[in-house]
Nucleic acid binder design. Structure first.
Lengths: 349, 349
DNA sequence: GCGACCGAGGAAACCGGTTGACTGAAGCTT
DNA sequence: AAGCTTCAGTCAACCGGTTTCCTCGGTCGC
């Protein structure tokens, strides 16, 4: 019989090691408030190992200890950016001995439910919230409660528990690249209004456009989806004067999906990429390299954002004071075929 | 004070309703083994509502009842196909009063861990497994245990608990389309060997190619990623004779990402889509419509697969016998720009 | 030599539900 | 009128850990 079919319980381990439940519990949890002989300690660990002991999470949670589980609320599972963040968080949580639950928060509709289900029911010790938005029903409830939580990617002003990336620098990186190629009119496709990283990116874009002395820097907003990017691109490409030439020579988008949608829109208008319009997307994901043309992107430390957020949340759970964190890694430009020098008026070959 | 900060417990509800804990528990769980006056029942419900009572999941699990949570193991979070399935499952689980936890199973490396963490620790009532593979460590453990579980998408032969789609028909649908356009040499990019839906798709492809009397139907395997599709495409497009013309006029891929990689490979070889090579992908996801050219796909009932799997798992948890299920919806062809009539030898305009 | 102290570990009371056995009152039989 | 059901609900023993307060034997200080 290769495996015992029944769960080993704490009392089984205690019996096997010849000690009491209390001792086993303290030894296995590494508590300092008791002195145990090394010999006894060893016996306990061996017995637990031999029996394949796993504490019952419910019993543990019930007895007042932690559940060793976290919940991660992300706005859209379909968005690979969030999924990448989630993977980072998941992995780090495991390393720290936590289980992390992934929950999709359909724009707050279920957030209140999730909140109850997860925390009130004692299923998790803390919340990682990537779906914050002004007016989100969860925010109120959280600010009144003592539940450990951090906001990642989308920050909440004044919360003092925001884990973010240096998104302003991503705009600078993208703009520097386009400016260096000779572009003087660059459009930006931002995310929906009110979403912090998107706002920051937009403001940094406008500020840096001013610093560089661009001729114009129009902005349009849209969802983080292909369709959102497509609509915004069409708005930015609508010829202002009568010459039929698009008013911008390059587009910088807030998400990869928007870039894909924008590229489709550009072609629908009969324009070429990058000859007529250059495109730079945000967040480097595998698909970018396989698009036609391959998309130049600004790679952000998504994975690190996830791990940093878990670190911060666990620290909070352990009673350390919260604080805003900016993930240190810098944005990197992934140079591919979707950007080139602009064809200036009169320079048509 | 808009909200009471402390959790209401069962005794609180009992006290408020003027009954005992036992009565509250039975009423709220809708148990039949007790008779309660409608009036009392109403009082209990009202008290629970007024206090915002939420049962503590740990206590509940400990007391032998169900945790009302399921775990969904998927092979890769980065693959939108699985994510779509997961969303279906998640949603249906909620409707049935279950919480569904999403866990990424990195090819079995963590599966044994996940298994312990989730089931042994009493966190979930059952497992939805989309990451089955021959030799997967979890399969052994599961077949020996009594833990409710179902396999979805990737089936396990003889398990009697497979929830699948009619993937054979997706191959037929794709081939019929290409054959109807006049293609006589069609290549298939399959998934990694041993993965059931991929094997079924491949066999159906070969069988139907025979039925239609195609001149040739070569197959190459690759991961479900862009790179996997790219490599496989290069293998299938290598000119066999010396005329430089690719041996196939159309490709049918096992995943959308493979199709994207294949399209990039086709262009790298200096060929045009669809003029030189037509491409049909599997699974219709939003990005398909925004590719260049827009990708013709076979849409599969991914969402329904998720919901059906949850239904089956919950039925198993409720003690009903398991059984294989094939989700009824038929594959639908999403006709876009990546397929066209082949340019036959000598017919070059 | 005697109490104080310390190291090593144990007993038992919780945590918040669930559940089967049980009870008191009312209704039905004969 | 006594006995038997049925109704409506209660009691208390769990579930499997954690934690607080003890105990017990030996050392140490004086």
């Amino acid at each position: 019989m290769p495996e015992q079919p029944v769960r080993a319980k704490l009392v089984d381990v205690a019996h096997a090691a010849g000690v009491s439940k209390a001792t086993v519990s303290k030894v296995l949890n590494g508590r300092q408030d008791i002195s145990v002989r090394p010999e006894t300690r060893r016996r306990v660990h061996e017995a637990a190992e031999a029996l394949g002991y796993r504490p019952h999470s419910g019993a543990r949670a019930l007895a007042g200890a932690s559940t060793h589980a976290l919940a991660l609320l992300i706005p859209a599972l379909a968005n690979p950016t969030y999924v990448t963040i989630a993977r980072g968080a998941y992995q780090r949580a495991r390393e720290l001995g936590y289980l992390s639950l992934l929950a999709e928060d359909f724009d707050g509709q279920e957030a209140d439910e999730s909140f109850h289900d997860l925390v009130q029911e004692g299923r998790v010790d803390g919340l990682l919230i990537a779906s914050a938005r002004p007016g989100h029903p969860l925010l109120d409830a959280l600010s009144r409660s003592a539940i450990p939580h951090v906001f990642l990617n989308r920050s909440v002003e004044g919360s003092g528990r925001n884990i973010t990336m240096d998104v302003a620098r991503s705009s600078v990186t993208a703009l520097d690249h386009l400016h260096g190629l000779g572009h003087r009119v660059v459009g930006h496709i931002a995310g929906p209004p009110g979403i912090t990283p998107s706002e920051v990116r937009k403001e940094a874009f406008l500020r840096h456009a001013g610093t560089l002395g661009l001729d114009a820097a129009p902005v349009a907003s849209g969802d983080f989806t292909e369709d959102g990017g497509g609509s915004a691109a069409r708005a930015l490409l609508r010829p202002a004067d009568g010459d039929g030439r698009p008013p911008v020579t390059a587009l910088y988008t807030s998400s990869l999906a928007q870039a894909i949608g924008a590229m489709a829109a550009i072609r629908d208008l009969g324009l070429r990429i990058p000859e007529d319009v250059s495109v730079v997307g945000n967040d480097d994901l595998p698909v970018a390299a396989h698009l036609h043309p391959p998309l130049t992107t600004v790679a952000m430390p998504l994975h690190e954002l996830g791990t940093a957020a878990v670190d911060a949340l666990v620290a909070t759970i352990d009673g350390k004071p919260a604080g805003d964190v900016v993930v240190p890694t810098e944005p990197r430009l992934m140079l591919r075929g979707s950007t080139a020098r602009p064809a200036r008026p009169g320079e048509t070959p």
